[in-house]
């Protein structure tokens, strides 16, 4: 943590945000959310502000690898954490499988909820792979392992509202990407074992 210029009595602090593998040191008003810090201070406008109240999911980023809403995350409280935004999910010029699937299968219309959908889906696929159940999971006992079927995808992606109503293609895109990620993981595991 950068040495705080602040404390209980001051209202701003110097912080370091690790965004997409890059460290940014900046002073922030304590009121500044992570979302506003990304958009207004670091010019990373890919993360969108849809409601600014935790009610739509457009601002979804990964914080320490987990999907989170940057609109309800104070920037000062994100000091020192690893943040991944839509600008950081591709591997150079190679799109992440989720990005490619949204592009190919038209998993959007206006595109405004799209960065949040993509970040959410990337983390969601990992959550599922880790065995996390969802509200669509009939049997939540640890022994049961639900497949990532359309109903599971729908429930797990329900924190990302899309007003254009692109849900049908979003589900298709996430399903395709999840298969690819799984195949990549399997291939990587085989390679590691060989």
């Amino acid at each position: 943590m950068a040495p705080p210029t602040s404390g209980a009595t001051t209202t701003s602090s110097g912080i370091t945000l690790n965004v997409n593998g890059e460290k940014h040191t900046l002073p922030v008003d304590h009121r500044t959310t992570l979302l506003d810090a990304l958009r207004e201070r670091l010019d990373l406008t890919g993360t969108k502000k849809g409601c600014d109240q935790g009610q739509c999911g457009a601002c979804t980023v990964l914080v320490d690898g987990r999907r989170s809403l940057s609109c309800l995350q104070l920037a000062v409280a994100a000091d020192g954490r690893e943040i991944t935004t839509i600008e950081g999910v591709a591997d150079g010029d190679r799109l992440h499988p989720v990005q490619q699937a949204f592009l190919d299968l038209d998993g959007y219309q206006c595109g405004y909820c799209t960065p949040g959908q993509i970040c959410s889906a990337i983390a969601m696929i990992e959550e599922h792979a880790a065995g996390w159940p969802s509200a669509a999971t009939a049997d939540v006992r640890p022994e049961a392992t639900p497949p990532l079927d359309p109903d599971e995808i729908r429930e797990r992606m329900s924190g990302n509202l899309c007003r254009c109503g692109a849900y049908v293609n979003i589900v298709r895109a996430v399903a395709r990407a999840a298969d690819e990620v799984r195949a990549d993981d399997t291939a990587a595991a085989k390679e590691a074992a060989a």
């Binding site: 990373l44 406008t45 890919g46 993360t47 969108k48 502000k49 935004t85 839509i86 600008e87 591709a90 799109l95 990005q99 490619q100 949204f102 592009l103 190919d104 038209d106 959007y108 595109g111 405004y112 799209t114 960065p115 993509i118």
Partner: peptide, 17 residues
């Protein structure tokens, strides 16, 4: 696929704000 699709899935597309 959309001409602006790449910009939209990478977050490069800038909206008015």
């Amino acid at each position: 696929t959309r001409l602006e699709g790449l910009a939209k899935v990478t977050g490069e597309a800038r909206y008015s704000g």
